[in-house]
């Protein structure tokens, strides 16, 4: 069964996700730039980039409501970094809310400036029993989760990966590494949910 996965293609590290997904069998990738593109896909990645920029563009190009609608109706979505910020219902250090569909409170640039960006290897049992490399670039983390949200991984007590029904978020960027475990997990989740 072929699965169609979209990557929100407004700004940021889009092609990096595309290259990872194309390594996985039975996946067809669509770059989503307008609302019609949403009708073709069963899963969507909200990539890293600048959340203020992407948040503005989804509003200006009338993608916001269709996105909220699709996600509320069960479309599987994965937000990396800026994508996490877009999905959050609240940002603790910013008054803006973008899609506001996920019951998490997120802190932007939580680790500081670029000099505090870092990478590490972690085992996320939900995703793989092997350690995967993860990269944090001016990353956010989750300060608080609602009761329907499951924390998938914590670093120093801060949640950096979480899941709520059809929504997955990560503070880090698996797409900047050579390890496709997380993308495989995302594809598996889509297959499980649409069956």
């Amino acid at each position: 069964m072929k699965i169609n996965i979209g990557i929100l293609g407004l700004q940021g590290a889009i092609i990096e996700h595309q290259k990872m997904l194309e390594k996985i069998k039975d996946v067809k990738v669509y770059i989503v730039k307008r609302k019609e593109d949403l009708d073709k896909i069963q899963g969507l990645i909200l990539p890293g980039g600048e959340s203020t920029t992407i948040g503005k563009l989804i509003k200006d190009f009338n993608l916001k409501d269709p996105l909220i609608d699709k996600i509320k109706n069960g479309m599987i979505v994965w937000g990396t970094c800026a994508g996490m910020i877009l999905l959050a219902k609240k940002i603790s250090n910013d008054s803006k809310v973008h899609l506001g569909v996920m019951d998490i409170i997120v802190k932007r640039n939580a680790y500081g400036s670029q000099l505090n960006s870092f990478s590490t290897n972690i085992v996320i049992p939900e995703v793989s029993n092997k350690a995967i490399p993860v990269v944090f670039i001016r990353a956010p983390y989750i300060e608080k989760i609602g009761k329907n949200v499951e924390a998938l991984y914590k670093i120093n007590d801060k949640i950096v990966a979480a899941k709520q029904d059809n929504m997955i978020v990560t503070s880090f960027h698996p797409e900047l590494t050579n390890d496709i475990s997380f993308h495989k997990y995302f594809v598996k989740e889509i297959k499980r949910k649409i069956r």
Partner: peptide, 30 residues
Amino acid sequence: LNKNLAQMLKGGVIMDVTNAEQAKIAEEAG
């Protein structure tokens, strides 16, 4: 990591600003 930050800026516009007020305008503009 430094190359990675540049990757996050792709498809975007970086604007020259000469004061805090302009910086806010630039951020607000996207």
